[in-house]
């Protein structure tokens, strides 16, 4: 565990907290993609199956359970909460799951370290996490007024990705057997998806304006 990874995890946790607070405090999930949130829940379920058979540290197990619980809590609010679900932009959030899940599953079946059920599911979760933000980015492009909490949520997620890349560079330099090309390539793709968003986020932040993405 190094400082970069700790920062990455904290940004990840903070992004989820910001989103949960937004939903609970404003009783609204406007601008948030349910598709992205459900994909993240799927990512966590596939990746953290190892909670049942391997133990790394109290920190890891605690964070895994927290990520699972918060992901399902967000999905529950958006799908079933009587007030919150009415604020969901159903008509705008049209990204098709199958376009993301099918290629990731195929890729995980072909490109993996070991052909076992848990390893393939783990690899699938790595690939899926890389692209799960796409429905959210598409939704933000369609929504004209992006509220600050939504913009900050995505920015915090981007910061989490950035710090994980620093963590991998650090581990690559300091650990002899750190050759994680599956994680590397997916991670770089995932972070690159945020580059465009960050460009406009920085522009609006500098001009002290509300975030607006060009159509």
């Amino acid at each position: 565990m190094n400082l970069f990874r700790l920062c990455g995890d904290m940004f990840h946790l903070l992004s989820i907290m910001v989103l949960l607070l937004k939903i609970r405090a404003t009783r609204s999930c406007r601008g948030i993609s349910l598709k992205t949130q459900e994909l993240y829940a799927l990512v966590f379920v596939c990746r953290y199956l190892d909670l049942f058979y391997s133990f790394i540290s109290v920190y890891n197990s605690f964070m895994k359970v927290t990520f699972l619980a918060t992901a399902f809590s967000i999905v529950r609010y958006m799908r079933y909460d009587k007030v919150v679900k009415q604020t969901y932009d159903r008509e705008q959030d049209t990204f098709r799951y199958v376009f993301l899940i099918a290629p990731c599953l195929l890729l995980a079946l072909v490109l993996n370290h070991r052909f076992t059920l848990t390893e393939v599911l783990w690899t699938f979760s790595i690939y899926l996490e890389a692209v799960a933000i796409l429905p959210q980015l598409v939704l933000m492009q369609r929504t004209q007024n992006i509220d600050n909490l939504t913009a900050n949520y995505v920015a915090l997620l981007g910061a989490y990705r950035g710090f994980y890349i620093l963590n991998w560079i650090y581990r690559f330099a300091t650990e002899r057997h750190y050759r994680q090309w599956i994680v590397w390539i997916s991670g770089v793709i995932q972070t690159a998806l945020y580059a465009d968003f960050f460009f406009y986020y920085a522009l609006c932040w500098k001009a002290n304006k509300r975030l607006q993405l060009p159509a």
Partner: peptide
């Protein structure tokens, strides 16, 4: 253990 290290991340 080629991939043991990646599994210790979140």
């Amino acid at each position: 253990q080629a991939n043991a290290t990646a599994h210790d991340e979140l």
